[in-house]
Design a protein around this nucleic acid. Structure first.
Lengths: 243, 243
DNA sequence: CATGCGTATTACAGAATAATTACAAGCGCG
DNA sequence: CGCGCTTGTAATTATTCTGTAATACGCATG
């Protein structure tokens, strides 16, 4: 649960998610595209499975939103194909469907769909689901790497990399960066940082955090990314790769 | 551990909820007040319906916790009255009761109660119910975002966005906007704003509010939405996205 | 259209808050 | 033990924010 909450943050703060919409009805494609772009996502559209596969191979999306019912290759079938190819296997998929029976749910989930949205749906609901799925999927570090912007944190070798160049920093700064990069975009108070980075039973001055922020920024300086570490005046700090 | 902490944060990341306890037994009032304050909530108490109505009109709480059985006006009756007044109609209410029959449940729910807690209850359960109700009624979606018109307030990253563009403002203006966006369309007097935005024990000039309204408007200017912040002449201010 | 009350706007000095620097104590390791 | 590196705190400086008061403006009322 904490996990969920923790990962939840990253949602909107990550790089802008790239979504591919696959639906044969252009009206729906346009509606969704409009809604997503308004919400700051990068959105592409495909009218059928063929187009979709092409678009995906050219430009791997972070999420695919597809209609269940399509002429030719169905959404279900398309899902199966995507799951088969290692290149696309872990792209999350949300299915748009008018079907509501349990049977379909089971079939869909077996085929590797991550979520369902039953038509008709509100743009608001759509957005919420998309965010939920992206959240659930994204901070995934397959081999222990966390990437944010130009920074890569390798939790296995315990190194921070930029352009294959290692950035040197003290243990405390490393832990702090790891925490921040695991929860990008979320603002933390100094006390929360003391809790999360130092541990629940460390009793230090709040201002100590400032100093370590300073040290971390200095360590990130050579990579030119010290601006990722932002001050939230009156509250604390936040790590954000972009914007 | 990070788990718990993370979860707790996400709940308390928000502004601290203001709860009003209405119970004729001072022992219970004190117990609850103590528990809530320990949990970081702002808690006020009233001994009967009359006091409650007064307290509410002075200082609109985010939630009312009331005893079913009270001398004079009963909890049920108080609920009805609160529901009738537009100013208080959507304040969530949790009823404390020893009654357990189905009949009572039905009556209570019809009157507009949001939840029940049957005595005796543990502080832990109390807290859980309160959080659940507040979460359910809060305008913030699951990502901690509050949207009103063209404005998005991201409580997680502590940013105010318009077209993915961040609007900069001071901490006080941010808190004020958060309050307004959480209670859209509702007019507040300067004193109420001082209470809700600055906290119960801030003693400032009423006119100070004007200045911060001005500052907030100025901050909203680049987004072209400063008109959302409306003056209610002779009373105070109101935030309204549409019109 | 003049008057009076309430609001908007501006300026400013003191208060808060954050950045930066310096330093002494602690730690791990050869 | 002594060296280098790390840490927490305190002191100092830089920056931003805040509350107040002074002034200008606007609206309603007679």
């Amino acid at each position: 649960m904490g996990q969920m909450a923790a990962t939840a943050d990253s949602v909107l703060t990550q790089k802008q998610p790239r979504v591919l919409v696959v639906d044969d009805e252009s009206a729906i494609r346009d509606m969704i595209t409009f809604a997503l772009q308004r919400a700051g996502m990068e959105c592409h559209a495909a009218a059928d499975a063929q187009e979709a596969l092409l678009a995906i191979s050219e430009n791997r999306p972070d999420l695919v939103l597809m209609d269940w019912m399509m002429p030719g290759v169905s959404g279900l079938e398309l899902t199966r194909r995507l799951r088969k190819d290692p290149f696309t296997a872990d792209i999350p998929i949300i299915m748009l469907t008018a079907k509501v029976t349990e049977d379909d749910k089971v079939t869909g989930l077996e085929a590797g769909t991550d979520d369902y949205i039953i038509k008709p749906f509100s743009p608001r609901e759509l957005m919420a689901r998309i965010r939920a799925v992206i959240r659930r999927t994204s901070p995934a570090d397959e081999d222990g790497q966390i990437r944010q912007g130009d920074l890569t944190l390798d939790t296995v070798s315990r190194r921070v990399l930029h352009d294959n160049q290692e950035l040197h920093m003290g243990p405390t700064e490393y832990r702090m960066l790891e925490f921040f990069m695991s929860h990008p975009g979320r603002a933390y108070s100094r006390n929360q940082l003391l809790d999360h980075v130092w541990g629940a039973n460390a009793y230090l001055e709040e201002r100590t955090v400032d100093v370590h922020i300073r040290r971390l920024r200095k360590a990130l300086e050579p990579a030119g990314v010290s601006a990722y570490l932002q001050t939230v005046r009156g509250h604390g700090y936040r790590f954000m790769a972009e914007n």
